[in-house]
Amino acid sequence: MTTSSETLAAPRARRRKLPTELSILLVLAGIALTFELLGWIFIGQSFLMNQQRLTIMILQVSVVGIIAVGVTQVIITGGIDLSSGSVVGMTAMIAASFAQSADWARPVYPALVGLPVVIPLVIGLAIGTLAGIINGSLISYTKIPPFIATLGMMVSARGVAKWYTKGQPVSGLTPDFTFIGMGIWPVVIFLGVALIFHIALRYTRYGKFTYAIGANPQAARVSGINIEKHLIKVYAIAGMLAGLAGLVTAARAQTAQAGMGVMYELDAIAAAVIGGTSLAGGQGRITGTVIGTIILGTMTSGFTFLRVDAYYQEIIKGMIIVAAVVTDQYRQRKRKKV
């Protein structure tokens, strides 16, 4: 049951609401401080006062973060994208095959080696976008649920990734290409993408439509919004970002493998949801997703730091994800009541 629809008239005085991100930020701070404390107790070291660790931590989640920026938008429309992890693998393979250097012994296309770096980059983004357009068109025009459409893409795109070189990795990438995965670049790309879409969601019509469709598709329709077209746009953007994540992954590893990006879609969805994006649609913010991504990274990094066994890590991670969402739901319900 929802709360009363006939509540007393809201007070006229403007109440500046605390941003939703604040509570997520507090969760992050809580987790980080817990690790700090446990660090001193069990290891005798500081968790936070180690710049290298923090850099590695955020580097590790950047790829998931890039995907999560797209997935957040999809979830805001009331949909879901399960295909992003596979799209990472597919774009990594295909783009890498156009980024091989001339001195590599067994290139995929011997005639196409040493190409300028824009070619693999554009190809990667285009393939991701195409996958997104297919997702969006299926959802818009055949009316199948996003879950099914993107599940299909998840399986097929992984298939393409494996079929492309019959399972062989693609290596010998040009330094120009691997550059985007070097040093701090993945983080810059992640935060840059996050900033762009934060602005797009909050300050452009594209954003308003995205929220409107998720909050009440019928209302959006009668307001004259072309829902079909807009959904295709949103899924295309999510696909493009998954493609971008594929490029970064291949560049960072200096090689592409068909198994890249497995389960990334779930991490991205988790990051969005931890960050306050509602799976029911209509609500969510990129800033929350960025914090959600960092929470995921902090957990991985913290457990490694505490030398927790990898199996336990996953078990605890799963519980924390659920706990974060439960807390958030509870908090929202409380806020709604007053």
Partner: peptide, 16 residues
Amino acid sequence: LNLMPYMSVAENIWIR
């Protein structure tokens, strides 16, 4: 009623 619950009154009115 055909409004977007999580958007502001102004955003609802001028959507598109």
